[in-house]
């Protein structure tokens, strides 16, 4: 319980404070935003990615293999589909819990621009569902815990670095910036950042559709793979 709270809440907070204060002095403002304010909204989104992914990979994998919790559920009148839905919802719930905590801290630090920041919460939940479902595909394919490092290094870290969490996308070559929009995190940032800085996103639906598409595809694929893996 406590280790997981520390990981899900403490780590992003450290990033926010260290980067915000340390880096912020060097960087100054980004557009009209102080760096710390810019960063806070990015961290809220990337935290949804890491929290939901971690839960869907390490914790779910432990329940599937080591603890055989899924096995005991399948002996009861539950199905693989029930379990996958439950796991993804739990991943999203954890993302929402730690996201809310970070939002509160950001607010106390004066990094939030207006009441509409509350609307970031449903977006965090949606991002949690999306990333929880995508990570579940990795879990379905994984032979061991080591396998998750591929996803961390090859997918998650590049996505965090290229989605406008730490610096604006227009700093990147335009081809790379465009490529970033093929991934869901950049779309989350596009919605959450204006909400947390007192403004309104110019477009919402197209961004949400990308996130929903990734989540839907991840959900469908992980269901297919886990049904096969667990039915043998």
């Amino acid at each position: 319980m406590w280790p997981s709270i520390l990981g899900n809440f403490g780590e992003p907070l450290l990033y926010l404070l260290a980067f915000g204060y340390g880096f912020g002095r060097l960087v100054g403002d980004i557009g009209e935003l102080p760096y710390m304010v810019f960063l806070a909204s990015g961290i809220v989104c990337s935290n949804a990615l890491t929290t939901a992914s971690f839960e869907s990979m390490y914790s779910a994998f432990t329940r599937m293999t080591q603890q055989q919790t899924w096995g005991s559920m399948l002996d009861a009148p539950l199905t693989v589909d029930d379990i996958v839905i439950g796991e993804i919802c739990w991943s999203a719930t954890k993302a929402l819990m730690s996201g809310s905590a970070i939002l509160v801290v950001a607010m106390l630090l004066g990094l939030v621009g207006g009441w509409q920041a509350v609307l970031a919460l449903p977006m965090i939940l949606l991002l949690g569902l999306c990333f929880g479902a995508c990570a579940m595909v990795v879990t379905a394919l994984s032979p061991s815990y080591d396998f998750f490092l591929y996803y961390f290094t090859l997918v998650m870290t590049p996505m965090v670095l290229l989605s406008g969490v730490f610096f604006p996308l227009d700093q990147l070559p335009s081809l790379v910036a465009q490529a970033a929009y093929l991934l869901p995190l950049a779309h989350g940032v596009e919605i959450v950042r204006p909400l947390m800085t007192g403004g309104w996103p110019s477009t919402v639906l197209p961004h949400m559709l990308v996130i929903i598409a990734y989540g839907g595809a991840g959900f469908w694929l992980s269901l297919y793979l886990l049904r096969r893996r667990l039915a043998s």
């Binding site: 603890q67 055989q68 919790t69 096995g71 005991s72 002996d75 009861a76 009148p77």
Partner: peptide, 13 residues
């Protein structure tokens, strides 16, 4: 399965 009880080979409490 609603009417079955299962004791698995390895404890999965």
């Amino acid at each position: 399965r609603e009417r079955i009880g299962v004791v698995p080979q390895l404890d999965n409490l």
